[in-house]
Nucleic acid binder design. Structure first.
Lengths: 136, 136
DNA sequence: CAATATCGTACTAGTAATAGTTACGATTAG
DNA sequence: CTAATCGTAACTATTACTAGTACGATATTG
């Protein structure tokens, strides 16, 4: 599978958007990310549902940042994408009735959920304003 | 990407192998996992390098468990597979010179490595003998 | 109302990892 | 020598993504 880079990319974009009041079009943002406007619409669309950005159609439309950077965390963004498991590792399903397989799956699931909880905890501490360049 | 189920599957197999002294052929193990002997050889081959199992060729050959279950942890198995990142999430690489992107990548990398450390810590506490059915 | 800018979205293509399969060679017991 | 078994290369299938194409919907402007 190719990796999911949406979180890092959109964090990057939102910080740049905060530099310019007004709206940025999908095309402009796509140029920033070396990609296609459709990719941008998909990513930004997910954030819109959480109220972090808004969009307007038609001429002079585009995307607008709706919250200050310090009020948006990596966890907010991560959850906006409605992600499945962030792991490439999963339990097995060969013999669902085998008590040994079930015990192995239970142990692995616990380790995965502990790691996922730690990941979300770390994400919750990162706000977008922390990404601003220091003004020495 | 399809998910990596090797850890759960091989843990299951090793526990069953402990029930029978002697060797188990790749074919026998493959039947247990509903798969093909070649898949088994690939998975078991990785464990052989860590000394957890050994293999013998020729008639009456097969795979033998070389360590007691309580001395094999999920972390031992996980590392035997020489895994890359266990995450589906990665940093972005669109504008490596942009200070904002770099800051976003740094923050995300830290969260990922904290979660990975937690995962390995959890795996290190699971020994295979914990998967044995309780004899009430 | 016409023209154009812009988002919305369904559909297809590309990608990267494990899983599965086939084929065949190497080794060893008897 | 024969048969059982592992070793491994090469190829295909599956899965779950991201990336890209095409076209429709909507809103502004004159």
């Amino acid at each position: 599978m190719s990796k999911d880079t949406r979180l890092a990319r959109v964090a990057h974009v939102l910080v740049h958007m905060s530099f310019n009041e007004g709206t940025a079009t999908s095309e402009t943002i796509a140029a920033m990310l070396d990609t296609n406007p459709v990719v941008v619409r998909r990513i930004m669309g997910a954030l819109r549902e959480g109220g972090y950005v808004s969009s307007e159609r038609g001429p002079n439309g585009g995307w607008r940042l709706e919250r200050p950077l310090r009020e948006i965390t990596f966890l907010n963004i991560y959850r906006a994408f409605d992600p499945g498991s962030p792991f490439t590792i999963a339990t097995s399903d060969d013999h669902p009735k085998c008590v040994v397989e079930r015990a192995a799956n239970r142990a692995l699931s616990l380790a995965l959920s502990e790691a996922a909880a730690r990941f979300e905890q770390s994400l919750s501490k990162i706000t977008l304003d922390q990404l601003l360049p220091r003004k020495t």
